[in-house]
Amino acid sequence: MTEVHIRSIAKSFGPVPVLHDITTQFAPGSFTSLLGPSGSGKTTLLRIVAGFVTPDRGAVTIGTRDVTAVPVWGRNIGMMFQSYALFPHMSVARNIAFGLERRGIRGAEARALVDQALEMVRLTGFGARSPKELSGGQQQRVALARALVIKPSVLLLDEPLSALDRRLRQDMQVELLRIQRETGLTTIFVTHDQEEALTLSDRIAILDRGRIVQSGKPAEIYERPQTRFAAEFLGDSNFLTGTVEQGGVRLADGTLVQSAHPLPAPGAKATLAIRPEKLQVSTTAPNRLTARIVTVIYAGPVLSYLLETLDGTRLKLFQANRDGTILAQGATITLGWSPEHAIPVAE
């Protein structure tokens, strides 16, 4: 188990700054997702840890060793790529043995390790096949076996599941998590898929324009987003903007919204984020807003409603499809929510 430290990393590509002064650490055996939209710098950060990109400033430490100046081949990392990146001219077994050969492990010892790795990814007996003869999911499992067999200090995953279809992706998520727990490898996972990040990680770091805007446990980030970006990028959110007064936020239409969380000083502007599934149709809740249903989206287990308040604020409401009743489009309803669920966020 190895810790990875990143200290004051900055990187620009030409005049374009990609990462600004990033400092973070990845605890031993943890599974961390770097989550962000494209262009947020998440892939660059991963590639700096891997050694494919040299940072302009800052240092990367894997375990106790400062690897900032160590080339990729000397870092002992396991890496998985979105395109699988198997060696097309080698059999599955030779693909997996490639990293072992680089470490001088050959012959019977290598064969035993390759078999062990194939067993771990449930592909026993596939050693003689060519990568071309495997499905996408199988190829990605070979790539995982190839990355794990060298007993890397850290496992780096660059959107490895994005090329798989939904069903296969879910199976691979389970598999990946099982193997990560079994091996106890410190894992850094780059993704733009928020659901994947929530399912897999112990910790999520949300990146936006080259900065980590928030990091923490998935539930912590989801329940207590600190910025509008974090609230919007991880899950859906409704935003209500107003001025702080009397321990609440006064909206433009005069409604006072209570929040159970610390607010800025009275008189300041504030934005509250409320998750769409935390809203309910209620006339008794402490916080209430009246809105008209504009669109009804029926998605089986969940119903989504797009609503509009009198002053034009757009809202979303998610309801579990508990008894099959669907609210009518055009109806005006009163939404209520608890002050606990009104989270003040920075713009």
Partner: peptide, 27 residues
Amino acid sequence: IDDAVIEAAQSLGARWGTVLTRILIPL
């Protein structure tokens, strides 16, 4: 040749000479 294939070889410990003789020339 996919760049990722070369990067995968490097991540597994291959130096440029190995990448050349084991990956680039065969492919």
